[in-house]
């Protein structure tokens, strides 16, 4: 990403890779959500990302900002639950951060990603340790910023993906304080958070396609 930069075609690849990963992990997301939620995360995300890919196939959105905005609006309109507004807001805030830029360098992409994550916090009011998708996203953007100085693009994104995976794994011993899992109180301990799991797939997809 440091070389040619990230353009709309690269973002298109990233979002499609995320969609493919969600479809592939649908059953796992549903299983995790059955344990501490209401068993719909896999189905909802799959439905939303299918709609996102259909929009990408239409090819109406051209620049990076338009593509991210279209993705966010589609997720808000199709996913439902808490994931719809949260992932939707993530992409909408990224779109705002990107603006009219045609090609993003590493720093611009990292800044947009951080803006997206801040949007998730604003919408969901989650804090670190609440056992939510934020627990995977926050360490990922921190790792990306830290690695950008030294590493090449692929290395920085790999570091972000590793941090997201570690953040995801760290949700298992946490007691949920946000979302439906919070109703379980102490019984939410010992289960991996489904939102953090799908968020780690999002960052891994970036490492696979944008590095």
């Amino acid at each position: 990403m440091a070389g040619a930069g990230i353009d709309a075609a690269a973002l298109d690849r990233w979002i499609r890779a995320f969609a493919a990963a969600i479809t592939e992990h649908e059953a796992e997301l549903t299983r995790l959500d059955s344990a501490i939620g209401d068993a719909d995360h896999g189905a909802n995300m799959t439905r939303g990302l299918k709609a996102v890919v259909a929009k990408l196939d239409d090819g109406a959105a051209t620049g990076p900002g338009a593509l991210l905005k279209q993705t966010g609006m589609t997720l808000v309109s199709t996913v439902g639950g808490a994931s719809g507004p949260l992932y939707g807001t993530f992409f909408l805030r990224m779109a705002t951060a990107v603006g009219d830029t045609d090609t993003l360098d590493g720093a611009a992409f990292a800044a947009a990603l951080r803006a997206g994550v801040e949007g998730v916090v604003a919408r969901g009011k989650a804090e670190a340790g609440d056992k939510t998708m934020y627990d995977a996203l926050a360490p990922a953007v921190d790792a990306l910023d830290a690695a950008l100085g030294g590493e090449d693009a692929a290395g920085a994104l790999s570091a972000a993906a590793a941090a997201a995976a570690a953040g995801r794994d760290a949700t298992t011993p946490m007691q949920a304080r946000k979302g439906r899992a919070s109703y379980l109180g102490e019984r939410s301990v010992g289960h991996q958070d489904p939102g953090a799991t799908s968020a780690a797939l999002l960052v891994q997809a970036a490492a696979d396609t944008l590095g």
């Binding site: 209401d38 909802n44 439905r47 808000v76 439902g80």
Partner: peptide, 11 residues
């Protein structure tokens, strides 16, 4: 009406 056990969307 949303999907089963899933909130409807803003639209």
């Amino acid at each position: 009406a949303g999907e089963v056990f899933t909130s409807p969307v803003p639209d």
